[in-house]
């Protein structure tokens, strides 16, 4: 029962660390997905006095990914009844070319301003509309969200560090007697601490399995997925291969560092 208690307290501490890390990863993944969505939706309107190719646009700034000409036919069609065909023909010839410019990544407000200036420098371009204000609001909101998540993660990391530190002291106290008795009979350090390492490894594996189960339940439950879909995001909350392996590595590292601290502490006491 006592041994089970020892296990549970370390497992809970490790589970908290892993859960916090995975939440941070999931949030980061969500923000990335949202960034991609924003990037796909976001475009700049360029008005040019002559036809421009994608390569010509790309030569102006490397952030430009592709360009789409905006068809003017619909506008002209609407004016058909109101204007004389001759005037309409003239308008068709003098009407500037409209382009929608898509970018390779989601830009910062500074990048947008720079891009706008660079495009406006080109003699073929008459006007650039970056919708900076709308873009700015969305981007600032996203940065705020990122900051909040970061602060939240640091707070969780601090609390769990305290939990682990407390656990470390408990372990040191619980195992010091056995280790010192073994030392009296000439047991080398590795043999004295073998049980601790075994415990730490088993607990790390159990904590990883529990985190996998928790996120599996999240995924299966679907409410989180549904919530994300409402803002147009589809992501994997938990990638069982990559996230599972990363969680196991973190759990093993934390528990082995914990054990090493106890072993070194015990050795110094002697």
């Amino acid at each position: 029962m006592k041994s089970l208690k020892n296990h549970i307290s370390l497992i809970v501490a490790l589970f908290t660390v892993l859960f916090a890390v995975q939440i941070y990863v999931a949030v980061d993944r969500t923000i990335d997905a949202y960034e991609t969505r924003l990037k796909n939706d976001y475009s700049i309107i360029v008005v040019a006095n002559k036809a421009l190719t994608v390569d010509e646009f790309k030569a102006m700034d490397s952030i430009i990914d592709r360009s789409e000409p905006i068809a003017t036919d619909q506008v002209l069609q609407r004016l058909k009844g109101e204007m004389a065909p001759k005037n309409l023909e003239l308008l068709k010839l003098t009407l500037p070319k409209f382009y929608r410019i898509y970018l390779s990544r989601f830009p910062t407000p500074e990048e947008i301003a720079k891009l706008q200036k660079r495009l406006e420098k080109n003699s073929s371009i008459q006007r650039v509309e970056g919708y900076a204000q709308t873009h700015d609001t969305v981007y600032k909101l996203m940065l705020l969200f990122k900051d909040v998540v970061q602060i939240f993660s640091i707070a969780i990391a601090a609390v769990t560090s305290l939990l682990i530190l407390k656990e470390m002291r408990l372990w040191q106290f619980q195992h010091a007697e056995r280790m010192s008795i073994m030392a009296l009979f000439g047991a080398p350090v590795w043999l004295r601490s073998a049980v601790l390492f075994r415990l730490a490894i088993v607990d790390a594996i159990i904590a990883t399995i529990l985190v996998c189960i928790a996120f599996f339940i999240f995924e299966e439950n679907g409410w989180m997925d549904m919530l994300l879909r409402t803002v147009g995001i589809t992501i994997d909350l938990f990638d069982f291969l990559h996230d599972g392996i990363r969680s196991l590595i973190i759990a093993l590292s934390v528990s082995i560092i914990l054990t090493l601290t106890i072993v070194i502490g015990n050795d110094e006491e002697e």
Partner: peptide
Amino acid sequence: LNFLRRHIGIVFQDYKLI
């Protein structure tokens, strides 16, 4: 020291059993 202790038996007043 570990080598020496492997050739010594020690008995304590408080037994020091695990």
